[in-house]
Every structure is written in structure tokens, then in C-alpha cells.
Design a binder for these strands. Structure first.
Length: 725
DNA sequence: GATGACGGTCTTTTT
DNA sequence: GACCGTCATC
């Protein structure tokens, strides 16, 4: 048995797998068999150490990683054993703990989980309440600050005390209101799931000690991406047993913007003083060309653990570097390569096109559709974030949690049923007076006490009837599918969607998809099914999108989401300054290093072929701009690259800011670029759309706000640059 | 209260 | 070039 478990493992992997008890830190480079180590370690504990499966907890970051882990455990241990192991994402595990044990700290088991959209809505309400102008202050900035505070375990009062500037004080007061709103709605946001779980451990030690006794071994994957709260959560669970194994790679830390803290790896070694450290340094995934490129790149980071990765794999093909004229050219070139490589025997599912921002997927989708190449788009349009899906879910939340005013407000007039702003305002103020939720206020609506016209009252009563009809559990509709069907008909939502002529079919199909998901819960009693369904819905993410279940297809995916994946052929596109590295990271060395790590993650996904590309022009927000190729390309040794189409012809060179070879009348010709805002003495303000090089001059095509499109010669027009792109 | 036109903003990355 | 919130009009 033992030999089978340890066969095909290298000596360091064996060390990690067979580590007996006590804390263990595994630093695992890309392609070094990280998941393999986790899976085999779990198997080792069960089969060799006689640990019961339910005494082992494995925590991952994404549902996908969790599912994959379960699959591999099933293969190794058999289904009945694998199923008993406790595994899930940080958020799902914390959520379960809170649903079962949250009551003593005021968390009812039917709490709603708010996603970003819900959160923005709450922030807006908090701003309204405080009289903060949301035009001046973007709600998402508050949300970022609030999330930052929460993941550092800072509560509103503490933030208030620490606040120095006016703005910081404002953030603190929005935070305070935000928390009140969440509480009144009986809702938690993502950060709360972990924060409140830790809070629960503190307030009700019995819950913690039960878990500590139950969980003998804890394993945490992607440890470099934990934030402070997550680390604390894990640390507490393992405090008693000291059997905590964390696996991660500092070079693949790409979530500091989500408050992941690399210091956790350092702190781990302090918090668990006698921890064993195992470094996995042999890469089994990539060709040596690809690995060499990745190592050369990551070595440019100053702030780095010394952790060089090696491979015994063959050299492989050179890395292709291609310069495109624009994003469509870039996409077409990649289509050509896919077609060619398919003729060489690769399948569509062997390809991944990876990029920095979701918006880049568009050009590829266009090209793929035109050429009939099947593709799956990961993450961009998330199924559970579509409007119709969120509306239906809001209805379900109302049924499930009578305090969820947010969901109530979302759909109280969707489809339109004559409940406008004034009616809603009146209802809310009445609810306020009564200190009750909107739904409960509606249940025994006091017609005398509400100050609106008759029609409004009638509409409200009508809505109340619809909702209570749905809540009523006594008829034949005792499963979720029945509930959904009844919901669609009695709320008029089905009709409502048909009214959206342009998207009717697509939206209806989405609801059909939701119906089949809901159907998976039909063997449960309705309210329990509702509870489970809503929990799942809140915690699933992009990769669980049911609309991307295409088997043989090219993958379109952001670099962030590629972590943990591998593909024989990887395209990394848009290697340009401002895009990769992203412009928001350019003024901070730390953030620039994180961008470099992001590219490192991308490169190390490739098994045999890596293609890099950049484009001299790129259209962002509808304006085309000249680009500069990414500084990261300079970090990759030329000997590893095969460069094509490097030369840039003059006709494609409308901008001259970056071309010192061209002799121009320096004083006459200012530095004007596509995208700049300019002012003309006669035409007024406008934006440069295009620049065309003419002998000794530059022709500018400018769209003026008032006077429309004009062709101007730079030497004559004497434009004033107001704002550079 | 519903509807449609307009103008401003947005794009990092996600549990 | 999409989406959202705001405003004018019905």
C-alpha cells in the first residue's frame, strides 16, 4: 500500500506527503506537483496513520480547485472515503459554520450573502442616509476601503479612531452605516463570512473547541493568497492539534489587491516555530525553454524568496513573440496558429488565450465566431450576475429571509407594477417607524398610517399577495422547481422578459438554465432546498458558470483565473505597457512586481507551446491609442524567443511621440497623440482620433465637441493640448 | 409612474 | 461602446 502511495513521487514530495505531525510549510513552485502532494498526503494520513476522513479538512480558494481535489481524492481513495473528508473554500466552510452555530452571536441560519452588486447598493443607501454625494465619491471606493478594513479585522469604531483626514472619517462613517444596513437586512458580505466566523470562535469558545477536537489535520492550498482573517481562521482551527499543512508559492501571489498578505508565509514560520519547511523545486510541466523564460522573468523581482525552479524536461519549441497591428490582427494571427496547430494533432481544449482584463476577450470572440472555432469564455459574464437571474434570486431571498430589504427593493417594482419612488419612500418610512422590515410592514399594512395615494396602496397590497402566495408552502408546490415556476407566472416575470424584444430569447434561456440548477435540489424539502440553493448561489463563481460546459473548446481566460491550470498551448496577449503591467500598477514598485508575478503565473501554465503577443494599436473605450511593448518582454532572454513581424512600417506609425528618428518642425509640432484632449482657437475643444504622418507634417483627425470631425495639419492648426491620454 | 434620450463613467484582477 | 443614473416628457 505504502509503496503505491509513494510511487512516482520525488524525495521532497515524499517528505511532504509522509510528514507525521506538527506544522508543515510546503513552498511549491509552478508545476511541481502541489496538488499531487496534497492529495497523496490526505491519502497517507487515512491509509497509513489511520486518521478518519472526517478528521481532515482541506481548504481551497476556489470552488473549482475544491472540486478538482475531491475528484482526485475519489480516484485515489474511492468515493465513499473521499466524501467524508471535509473540504471546501474558505468562504463555504465559514458559511456552514455560521449557519449551524451563528445564533448566539445574532446570526440566524437563513442569513443572506451579499455579492458586490448588493454591496454597492448598500453603500449607496448608506451614502444617501449620510447625505454623501455618490457622484463625487464613487461607492466602489468606499467598498474597497470597507473590505480592506474588514480583512484586517478593523471595525468601524476603530477605523473612526484611526481616521485622520476628512475623507478617512467619511469612509469610517459610511462603514458604520453599511454595517447597520447589513445587520438590519440579516445579511453578510464575503468578508463577514470569515470575520464573523472568527468572531464566533472568540465569543463562543465552545464552537471553536468542538471544531478543534473534530479536525485533527488541516490542509490549506494556495496559502500565499490568504488574507489576515483567513489565516487567523485557519490558525485557530489548527491551534490544538498543531497539525496544519499549508502549501503555497510566494512567486504566484497575485491577489494582494484582495488583501492577500504574503507576510502570512513569514508569520506562519513565527507562529508555528518548529514548522518543517519543504521546497518543491522540480517542474514537471513545462519545456525548459518555457521554464527558463519564467525564471528569468521572476528573477527581476527584488522582493522575493530565493526559490529557483528546475526541470529535466526537453528544451522544446522556442517561445513565439508576435507584434500585431491592432487587437483584431492579434486575434486573427492567433486563429491562424490554432488552425495550424490543430492540423499538427492538437485539440481545441489544448489551447488557452490569456489576458490581463476581461474586455480583451471581445476581439477573440469575434474572430473565433467568424472562423467557427468553439470557445469557452471564463468569467466575463457571470451567470449568477445576470439581471434576470439576480431578480429571481432576489424573489427567493425575500421568501427565505423576511428581513432582506435589499432584495425587496430590487424587485418590488420588477416587473413594473405601479410602485414608484414615492410609494417606496412612504413604505420605507413606515417600516422605519415600526422598526420592522419592509416585508413585515407590508404583511399588516396600515392603510391609515401610510401617506400615499390610493393607487399606490393598491399596488402594494397586490405585491404583498403575490409574495405571500409564494411563501405559502401548503399546496402542491413543495419543491424548488415548483416554486420557481409559480414565481415566474404570478410575478409576471415571464411576460416581463418577453417584453425585452432584443434579449428575450437569451434571457429566457438563462432562466431555463436556472430551472435545471434549481431542479438539483428537488429531493429536499422546499425550505431546506431554498437554504442550500441560496447558499450555493452566493458562493459559486465564474468557473461554475453552467453556460460554459463546452467540452472541446479553446479557453478564453484572465491571467488571474489561470492559476492552478495548465494547457499544452498558451497564448498571452496584450503585452503592452499600461495593460500588462496594468497602468494602475505603474507608480508602485510593489504592484509592478505583482504584475510580473501575474505574467509569471501565465507563462508557467504552458506545457509545450508559449505564444506572446502585443499590438501597436489598441482600442480602449472606443478610442485607439498607440502602445509601447511591455517592459516585461525585456526580462526574457532573446535566445529563448522567436520573434516575428517585429518591424513597424511608417504608414502604421501615426504617432510620433515615441519616434525620435522623424525630423519634424519641433516648435510647430507639439507632442500630440491619439486620445489627447485638445483645444482649437476656432473649433473649440475636441479629441484627437487619428494622426497620419505627412511629409514634414502630421495630419490630425479631431472630433470637436461642437464642430464635429475636422482634418487639420499640425503645423497650421496650433492645437493646445489640454490633457494627454 | 413609465419610458426613452442623454451624459458621464468605466476596466484591473474575484471569493 | 456598454452600462448606469438622471432628467424631461408622456
Amino acid at each position: 500500500m505504502k509503496s503505491e502511495l509513494l510511487a512516482n513521487l520525488n524525495s521532497r514530495q515524499v517528505l511532504a506527503v509522509t510528514h507525521d505531525s506538527g506544522p508543515l510549510l510546503v513552498i511549491a513552485g509552478p508545476g511541481s506537483g502541489k496538488t499531487r502532494v496534497i492529495v497523496h498526503r490526505v491519502a497517507f494520513l487515512i491509509e497509513q496513520q489511520q486518521i478518519r476522513p472526517e478528521e481532515i479538512m482541506v481548504v481551497t480558494f476556489t470552488n473549482k480547485a475544491s472540486r478538482e481535489l475531491k475528484e482526485r481524492l475519489k480516484t485515489l481513495l474511492g468515493e465513499s472515503v473521499a466524501e467524508r473528508i471535509i473540504s471546501g473554500t474558505f468562504h463555504s466552510i465559514a458559511s456552514k459554520i455560521l449557519r449551524v452555530n451563528g445564533d448566539p452571536i445574532g446570526i440566524k441560519n437563513n442569513f443572506s450573502i451579499y455579492d458586490r452588486e448588493d454591496q454597492i447598493f448598500v453603500v449607496r443607501q448608506a451614502c444617501d442616509f449620510l447625505g454623501v454625494d455618490t457622484k463625487k465619491f464613487n461607492p466602489s471606493i468606499f467598498l474597497t476601503k470597507i473590505s480592506n478594513a474588514k480583512s484586517k479585522m478593523i471595525d468601524p469604531e476603530l477605523l473612526q479612531t484611526a481616521a485622520v483626514s476628512v475623507f478617512e472619517k467619511l469612509v469610517a462613517s459610511v462603514y458604520l452605516e453599511y454595517e447597520k444596513f447589513l445587520h438590519d437586512n440579516q445579511a453578510l458580505d464575503f468578508d463577514d463570512l470569515l470575520l464573523q466566523a472568527c468572531n464566533l470562535f472568540e465569543k463562543v469558545p465552545q464552537v471553536l473547541s468542538n471544531i478543534q477536537h473534530r479536525i485533527k489535520y488541516l490542509l490549506v492550498d494556495e496559502f500565499q493568497d490568504t488574507n489576515l482573517v483567513q489565516y487567523k481562521f485557519a490558525k485557530q482551527i489548527a491551534y490544538e492539534s498543531q497539525n496544519i499543512c499549508v502549501v503555497g508559492d510566494p512567486d504566484q501571489s497575485i491577489y494582494s489587491w484582495r488583501n492577500a498578505d504574503l507576510k502570512n508565509i513569514l508569520n506562519f514560520q513565527k507562529d508555528f516555530i518548529n514548522c518543517t519547511v519543504v521546497k518543491l523545486v522540480e517542474n514537471y510541466r513545462s519545456t525548459s525553454n518555457i521554464l527558463d523564460a519564467s525564471q528569468a522573468l521572476i528573477n527581476k523581482n527584488n522582493n522575493r524568496f530565493d526559490n529557483d525552479i528546475e526541470t529535466n524536461n526537453p528544451e522544446g519549441a522556442p517561445i513565439e513573440l508576435y507584434r500585431a497591428d491592432n487587437e483584431y490582427d492579434e486575434a486573427n494571427k492567433i486563429v491562424e496558429k490554432i488552425v495550424k496547430l490543430r492540423n499538427d494533432g492538437f485539440f481545441y481544449e489544448n489551447f488557452a488565450v490569456t489576458y490581463r482584463v476581461n474586455a480583451q476577450s471581445r476581439a477573440f470572440e469575434d474572430a473565433f465566431i467568424r472562423k467557427g472555432i468553439p470557445y469557452k469564455l471564463i468569467g466575463a459574464l457571470k451567470f449568477y450576475q445576470r439581471r434576470e437571474i439576480k431578480d429571481i434570486i432576489a424573489y427567493m431571498r425575500i421568501i427565505h429571509n423576511s428581513n432582506d430589504d435589499n432584495s425587496m427593493l430590487r424587485v418590488i417594482n420588477v416587473p413594473p407594477r405601479g410602485i414608484g419612488d414615492r410609494t417606496i419612500a412612504a413604505l420605507r418610512s413606515l417600516a422605519n417607524q415600526k422598526g420592522s422590515s419592509l416585508r413585515n410592514t407590508l404583511v399588516d399594512l396600515d392603510e391609515e398610517m401610510i401617506d400615499i395615494r390610493k393607487a399606490g396602496i393598491k399596488s402594494l397590497i397586490n405585491f404583498q399577495r403575490i409574495v405571500s402566495g409564494l411563501i405559502d408552502n401548503s399546496f402542491s408546490q413543495n419543491n424548488l422547481t415548483n416554486l420557481l415556476d409559480k414565481l415566474l407566472s404570478t410575478t409576471g416575470y415571464q411576460e416581463h422578459i418577453k417584453g425585452d424584444i432584443e434579449h428575450a430569447e437569451e434571457r429566457w434561456e438563462n432562466i431555463g438554465e436556472l430551472r435545471s440548477i434549481v431542479g438539483q435540489f428537488d429531493d429536499l424539502e422546499r425550505d431546506e432546498a431554498l437554504n442550500r440553493f441560496l447558499d450555493q448561489v452566493a458562493l459559486v463563481t465564474a468557473e461554475d458558470d453552467p453556460s460554459v460546459e463546452i467540452k472541446s473548446a479553446v479557453t478564453l481566460i484572465t491571467l488571474h483565473q489561470t492559476k492552478g491550470l495548465e494547457f499544452p498551448i498558451v497564448f498571452i496577449v496584450g503585452l503592452e505597457e499600461g495593460l500588462l503591467p496594468h497602468k494602475r500598477s505603474l507608480d508602485s514598485p510593489e504592484e509592478l512586481e505583482e504584475e510580473r508575478r501575474l505574467l509569471y503565473v501565465g507563462i508557467t501554465r504552458a506545457i509545450s507551446h508559449l505564444h506572446l503577443s502585443w499590438s501597436t494599436y489598441r482600442t480602449i473605450f472606443g478610442t485607439t491609442t498607440r502602445t509601447i511593448r511591455s517592459q516585461f518582454l525585456e526580462n526574457i532572454p532573446e535566445r529563448l524567443l522567436h520573434i516575428s513581424n517585429e518591424h513597424i512600417s511608417h504608414s502604421e506609425y501615426p504617432s510620433f511621440r515615441n519616434n525620435s528618428n522623424l525630423k519634424l518642425h519641433q516648435n510647430e509640432l507639439m507632442d500630440i497623440n491619439v486620445g489627447d484632449k485638445v483645444e482649437h482657437f476656432k473649433f473649440g475643444k475636441g479629441r484627437v482620433m487619428k494622426t497620419i504622418l505627412r511629409p514634414g507634417d502630421v495630419e490630425l483627425i479631431v472630433v470637436f465637441k461642437v464642430n464635429g470631425i475636422k482634418h487639420l495639419l499640425s503645423s497650421v492648426a496650433k492645437l493646445k493640448v489640454l490633457e494627454e491620454k
